[in-house]
């Protein structure tokens, strides 16, 4: 659906986007992850035809954006970082205007408008001036704007920024639902968001792609050990000895003391061996009950930090 090849954008001497290539399949939800200033917005602005690239090819539905920008724009709904709202219009007027801009057939529009407003839950504010709406509602109106004309591709630049936690969850649910019908590219610097919503993640830093993969694969790839914490009731030294002797355990460390004779330990084991069962058996034989066992697999957040700091080390 979307093909990006060797995309580069320079602002003077600054490389905002440096030779990025990726493709997005039909119906895929792609997350664009990176710290502020990594080049997410720039890439999205180029993809939607708002600014031009310095070099590289962008194709949407097989059409090159430089050759036929109007055709490409027909396929894309864009919610920029700051929703492009006319504050002096009512929600309803604004959406009508967007529909005309995007040349939505008048016959289809009235039912489509109803659907969109219901989907993003703005029906009850449709006659209010946009300037009087709260930030959360403004964001929804912006999202509604992107949905006008039911474009195949949705490009959402930080769709949940500035919203309260409840609204964030709602918008995420909405994006997930939209992902069934649309191809979506969304950017974020919030990691759980991307792992919750996206099929695939691109991590970008300083204009370069650091990693592309599914959120699960990314965590798998980067965790060499299977790590977990275990809380056991029993004297520290004895418990430690038992754990250390289980086959496959590579590293052991006492964590926090919870109560008398109740300690948590951090265990790292060989990736190919599941040490949990022998661990349980050994401890049970010595009647040291396991009170808690919790996986410490790398979260996307850890991976993100790891990738970005690795990059920086290499650069030095």
């Amino acid at each position: 659906m979307i093909e990006i090849q060797n995309l580069t954008k320079e602002y003077g001497n600054v490389m905002a986007v440096d030779d990025i290539s990726f493709t997005v399949g039909k119906g895929e939800v792609l997350g664009f992850l990176g710290p502020n200033g990594a080049g997410k917005s720039t890439t999205m602005n180029i993809l939607t035809g708002f600014i031009s690239s310095t070099a590289g090819v962008v194709k949407v539905a097989g059409v090159d954006i430089l050759e036929n920008p109007v055709e490409v724009k027909k396929h894309i709904g864009y919610l920029p970082e700051q929703p492009p709202l006319y504050l002096d219009m009512t929600v309803s007027e604004y959406l009508d205007f967007c529909a005309k801009l995007k040349a939505v057939p008048i016959k289809k529009w009235s039912s489509q408008k109803k659907d969109i407003m219901e989907l993003v839950k703005i029906t009850h504010v449709s006659h209010r001036l946009i300037k009087n709406l709260s930030k959360g509602y403004k964001q929804r109106v912006g999202l509604a704007q992107a949905l006008v004309g039911t474009p195949e591709v949705l490009v959402l630049d930080e769709p949940t920024v500035g919203l309260d936690p409840k609204q964030i969850i709602e918008i995420r649910k909405l994006i997930k639902a939209l992902g069934k019908k649309h191809t979506i590219i969304l950017s974020s610097h919030i990691l759980p968001e991307v792992s919750a919503v996206c099929d695939r993640v691109i991590i970008i830093n300083k204009g370069k792609i650091v990693a592309i993969d599914t959120p699960e694969n990314l965590s798998k790839k980067l965790s060499d050990f299977s790590r977990f914490t275990i809380t056991v009731a029993g004297p520290e030294n004895e418990v430690k000895e038992i754990i250390a002797n289980v086959e496959g355990v590579k590293y052991l460390e006492t964590g926090t003391k919870i109560k008398d004779d109740e300690y948590s330990y951090i265990v790292e084991a060989d990736k190919n061996v599941d040490v949990r069962k022998p661990l349980f058996n050994q401890l049970a034989q010595n009647s040291f009950p396991i009170l808690e066992l919790k996986s410490l697999n790398l979260s996307l957040e850890d991976i993100f930090m790891q990738l970005i700091t690795n990059e920086e080390k290499e650069a030095i």
Binding site: N45, T48, G49, F50, V70, E71, K73, K74, I76, Y78, P80, Q82, P83, P84, L85, Y86, L87, C98, L101, K102, A103, Q145
Partner: peptide
Amino acid sequence: KNGTEVLLLTSPVR
């Protein structure tokens, strides 16, 4: 200033 320029420029309009 309002950022609505983005809407106009990314719509299928010349």
